[in-house]
Amino acid sequence: MYQFNQDLHQLQQRINLFLENRFVAINTDPSPLNEAMKYGVLLGGKRIRPFLVYVTGRMLGASMEQLDYAAAAIESIHAYSLIHDDLPAMDNDNLRRGKPTCHIAFDESTAILAGDALQSFAFELLTEIPELSNQQKISLIKTLAIAAGVKGMCLGQSLDLISEQKQISLLALETIHRNKTGALLCAALKLGFLCSPHFEDQLLAKSLENYCAAIGLAFQIQDDILDIEGDSSVIGKPVGSDLATDKSTYPKLLGLQGAKQKAKKLYLQAIRELESLPFDTTPLQELAAFIINRRS
């Protein structure tokens, strides 16, 4: 019987070991840049994006050794985004996963450069995937670039910043989070798909994309819910920060119960997208349940 928590733990260990080994070969002495990059990417976390890369690729027959590079690439982009998110000019956070943020552990300029370097490092990794066609590598690079940039995560972050202390519509909030959070989650699934022998199956790609769009939005809604009723010691950051900064959130626009109902509806949409696929989608189903039930 499939054990989600065991699988998640094993894949967390796998990606952490792969990343640790990659950083052994990087020497930036006397600059602390390597240590700051390593600190940012190995600070902890659930590794949901690498997990999505692995379980999607594995489901579709991709090599786990090839998936290591794609999983490390997307986690590097995610780590860079968190380092920059925490900066004084952005969210100005001192804690990340219960530990000092990168600019606190090092300094602001080093944190900025660590984020910049992790972004470049991600694309370097994608070029190095062994025994993968150039067509697949180009598709991987393009997919990650679009998701991380002005058509995805960075756009979402910008919209989020300019929406602070303003009343915005539910549609505007959804646009923010489909880009800020959802784009990178969807990219993770696409990277796993693109490493597989099925990388040209567009109908399959569409079903997987619809699934991930639903869980990406559900992930952000659950984040908003945890900011209200979560436990700081479990989450690793102060509860109530969204309220303190008067950010627009799903509980603010829909009420706490309305936000929970919205997350459940998105979960059911995600499951429906998987039902027609001729593969064992159990890990993806379990991930969707984990996202709306997580406490951190």
Rank of each mutant, 00 (worst) to 15 (best):
L170H: 14
T101Y: 06
L82N: 09
T175A: 12
Q261C: 07
H9Y: 14
H78F: 10
L208W: 02
E35W: 07
G115S: 04
D29K: 13
A147P: 09
N94F: 14
A244K: 14
S207P: 00
D280P: 09
L266A: 04
S233G: 13
E131Q: 14
L266E: 09
N92V: 00
D85T: 13
E35C: 01
Q222T: 10
H177R: 09
Q3S: 14
F18T: 07
K264L: 15
M1P: 10
L155P: 01
Q6H: 10
T110D: 06
P278R: 08
H103V: 10
K38F: 10
L253E: 00
E286K: 14
L118C: 11
R97N: 09
N293E: 15
A148S: 15
L43P: 00
I291P: 04
S196M: 13
Q10C: 08
I228M: 13
L173P: 07
S76C: 15
E124M: 10
D280Y: 12
D246G: 01
T181C: 03
K99R: 15
D91A: 05
D201S: 02
L87T: 05
R22C: 14
R294L: 02
L159N: 02
Q285W: 00
K262I: 00
R178W: 04
N34P: 00
F51R: 03
K260G: 06
F121D: 06
E174F: 04
D201M: 02
T110V: 15
F290G: 09
V234E: 11
Q157Y: 00
T143D: 05
Q136E: 04
A214Q: 01
K151R: 14
N134W: 10
I292S: 01
Q220A: 04
E286M: 09
V55T: 15
D116G: 09
P130R: 02
G40Y: 03
L132G: 03
L253K: 01
L140H: 07
E286A: 12
R178I: 12
L253V: 01
H198Q: 14
S133V: 03
S109N: 08
E108H: 04
A62L: 03
M1D: 13
L194E: 03
G216V: 01
E164A: 03
T245Q: 13
G230I: 10
G45L: 11
L118H: 07
N134Y: 07
L126F: 02
A289G: 02
S196A: 12
Y54S: 05
K38D: 06
P238K: 14
L254F: 06
N5A: 15
P238C: 04
I48F: 10
G255Y: 06
H84M: 08
P251T: 11
A79K: 01
M37L: 12
K262G: 00
I168Y: 12
V239N: 05
L277S: 08
D223E: 01
A114W: 02
G258M: 12
I168N: 12
I168P: 10
P278T: 13
Q285N: 13
K247M: 10
F106Y: 15
N16E: 15
N210R: 13
A122R: 12
I146G: 02
S109R: 12
V41D: 08
D242I: 06
L8V: 08
T175P: 00
S241K: 14
L189D: 05
Q66G: 08
L95M: 14
A218Q: 06
E20G: 04
S81M: 04
A214G: 07
L277N: 09
Y2A: 08
P32H: 05
R178D: 12
A79P: 04
S139F: 07
S196L: 11
G258W: 13
G230V: 08
K264W: 01
